[in-house]
Design a protein around this nucleic acid. Structure first.
Lengths: 344, 344
DNA sequence: CTGAAAGCGCTAACAC
DNA sequence: GTGTTAGCGCTTTCAG
């Protein structure tokens, strides 16, 4: 491993061939007005010398980096890993690289991420907003600097930027209707923080489904948690302490549903016969629970792909942020498993 | 959103203050020989003008980018998402950003990733090798260019670069010993593809644990699968068809263990009383199964943190790749749940 | 303590 | 079809 490759530049190639750097650059980039022969010989020499173009230099010159910045709450969360997968796939197809930054659900980190990306001169930003974020000034700054921004999953409509979300409302509606179809009439909802728009949409879907089917909404059957297994347990305990306990539960997401399931089992109630249950997100573990947890699929990889595609189309339009931003709403598909299917 | 921020450079700040760009640069970077007053006023002006340093320009000048490249098979796989989480955490602490590239387990993609990183002039590369990769020339090229490289999980010892792996052998040994301690004497192993070193290590740990405890290895009790839920089912079926069925199973990883569990249940055998079971990887779902699946924790986040730390220490030593590369072996911790604890 | 000047590697006018 | 020249924004000698 003695022979270390010294950095070779287009100047080096030019010197070897007795031509100028400009010609080398043109040849390597397949410019039109270049002799076929020159191009061939330049490329050969470049390969022979193990030349790797310095993208930093060309970025500085061109004013673009071919890098996309992605801000997510945490790569450790399955959902975001999948979205990243989708984004990276489309990015690579367009010869772009992906820089990631985790906010850890902290507003301050999110701000740091935006700053890091701006300084790195990324050509575009994809972001899923942290739960803690109230102020959107950092995202507005991205817009002001003319850098395309696309939000996914946790979007902020008032920002007026393109976004990809799933239809939380329709998903929640379908989940609730499914429970109604199973014969349930006392359907509870364990909700999330209502300032988070997706959680609020799910509540609305639940309420409208009940109303639309002539079932009165019972405030006692709606409890709000912190979106976690523990919180699901606590909320379910609360529901079980009611005089009239529910015969079904629609939980705002799967971890909450899981906590609820554990509590129902601990109370010696049967799932789904005594209490049916359905979650949201279709996390991997739901399939393996006993009984299998019904849920709503969020099409994570597709979300990443769509978000990236949206960004690339933004990148091609000059009049950014002028017209109404495009909003892609992905279908939320019901996944029925044993936890919600009552034997007739 | 009319007022678009025009790109402001150190020249702009200099002009406003009637000083030179050099002084502005020094002030912003807290150079020693600069008047306290100048520094203050420069920073104030920078903030007022919404100045963001252009890292592309400074990278070109300095010859380093403060960017780390990470190559993983897929961000969609939980394991790698967690490792990324750990890497990114340490990177951010060191004011570094993380560029990711997914190989999708393809050698060709892995090569493209290396090339993209080299061109992007990343200051270091972290990689987990694709299952398909036989040829390591692309990694050798990273070394030749003097860019620090650290491998994690799927390492190639012969490359002579630092790496972080977990102790698969010890983990498998501990898992098997745990089953022996529970009184099991007919312990089966469902293995993986033996050309993958981590799977082979787990087989060895299993065999040595049996030998060390005076239990003869029974070839019938060792079956090889394809590391999936379905394969786990098939392998378990095979084990259940033996005259002498096992009283315990050590599965090469959790999905295999899950398939085995399902088959055991379907055959109306009790877990753990009839057949105890333990997996490997400590996937999230294991905790939520009934009974909870015992497993071996791989310390994924720690692996990312250690790998990144190792890279940063490489970054500080000039005589890279000279001495014996450091190899960090993380402890594989037994996680005992109901699936392997027999009532005495 | 600050200014002048050069240069990191590349590309794009503008010449010829 | 190729060369010349300038410059992207920043940092760092070297002067003073």
């Amino acid at each position: 491993m003695r022979e270390k490759i010294n950095k070779v530049t287009i100047e080096d190639i030019a010197r070897v061939l007795n031509i100028t750097a400009a010609t080398v650059s043109r040849a390597l980039n397949d410019h039109p007005g270049i002799a076929e022969n020159t191009r061939r010989i330049v490329k050969e020499t470049a390969a022979r010398l193990h030349y790797q173009p310095n993208r930093i230099a060309s970025s500085l010159r061109l004013g673009r980096t071919n890098i996309l910045g992605v801000i997510i709450p945490s790569a450790e969360i399955n959902f975001f890993g999948s979205v990243i997968h989708g984004i990276e796939k489309i990015a690579n197809q367009n010869r772009y690289s992906v820089l990631i930054y985790q906010s850890n659900e902290l507003y301050e980190h999110e701000k740091l991420g935006v700053q890091a990306f701006l300084q790195a001169q990324v050509d575009g930003v994809l972001a899923s907003v942290s739960k803690e974020t109230i102020n959107a000034d950092h995202f507005i700054e991205i817009k002001k600097r003319g850098v395309p921004l696309v939000l996914f999953d946790r979007a902020i409509d008032s920002l007026g930027v393109p976004s990809v979300v799933i239809d939380d409302y329709a998903g929640a509606f379908a989940a609730t209707k499914h429970l109604i179809d199973q014969g349930c009439r006392h359907i509870a909802h364990i909700g999330g923080q209502q300032h988070v728009s997706i959680f609020n949409q799910r509540l609305k879907g639940y309420i409208d489904a009940l109303n639309m089917h002539g079932i009165a909404v019972n405030e006692d059957l709606i409890v709000y948690g912190r979106v976690s297994v523990d919180s699901g347990r606590e909320c379910m305990q609360q529901l079980l302490s009611l005089k009239q306990t529910p015969d079904a539960v629609f939980a705002v997401e799967d971890f909450t549903a899981l906590g609820a399931m554990q509590t129902i089992k601990d109370a010696d109630r049967k799932i789904p016969d005594d209490i049916a249950i359905i979650g949201f997100a279709n996390e991997q573990f739901g399939e393996f629970l006993t009984p299998g947890l019904s849920s709503v699929n969020q099409q994570t990889v597709t979300m990443g792909e769509e978000a990236a595609s949206l960004l690339f189309s933004e990148l091609q339009t000059a009049d950014r942020y002028q017209s109404n931003p495009k909003k892609i709403v992905l279908e939320a598909r019901l996944v029925c498993r044993a936890s919600s299917i009552k034997q007739k």
